[in-house]
Amino acid sequence: MNVRIPILKLDEVLIVSIQWELDDQTAIQFQEDLLNKMHETTARGVVIDLTSIDFIDSFIAKVLGDVISMSSLMGAKVVITGIQPAVAITLIELGIRLENVMTALDLENGLTKLRRELEA
């Protein structure tokens, strides 16, 4: 039953692409897995790609927000990429602003942005 979201490592960056609808358990499992992986590998940056996600409710938004705060506590920067227009609109209407989150149009832009941040 429990599907895990694969976390890939590329140099100093962890890459996560969420490909299907997140249920609560998977989301929490993902949070745990990502933090562990970060600890094991001493990665300095994370890109989370949400291109295939067609909705985000307040729970998933909270998990994402928490992941970002926790990562920054562990010294890693997070970029969220590929948020769909419909998802962005519903998040804003829900009142979830996801402030202080780095975003980019797609994975490629996200990696560029992250590399620039890490060099600075």
């Binding site: 909705f55 985000i56 409710d57 227009p85 419909a86 609109i89 519903t90 209407e93």
Partner: peptide, 10 residues
């Protein structure tokens, strides 16, 4: 449309 679908689902 896709935006309303997302609104309803959410």
């Amino acid at each position: 449309g896709t935006v309303d679908q997302a609104r309803i689902t959410t």
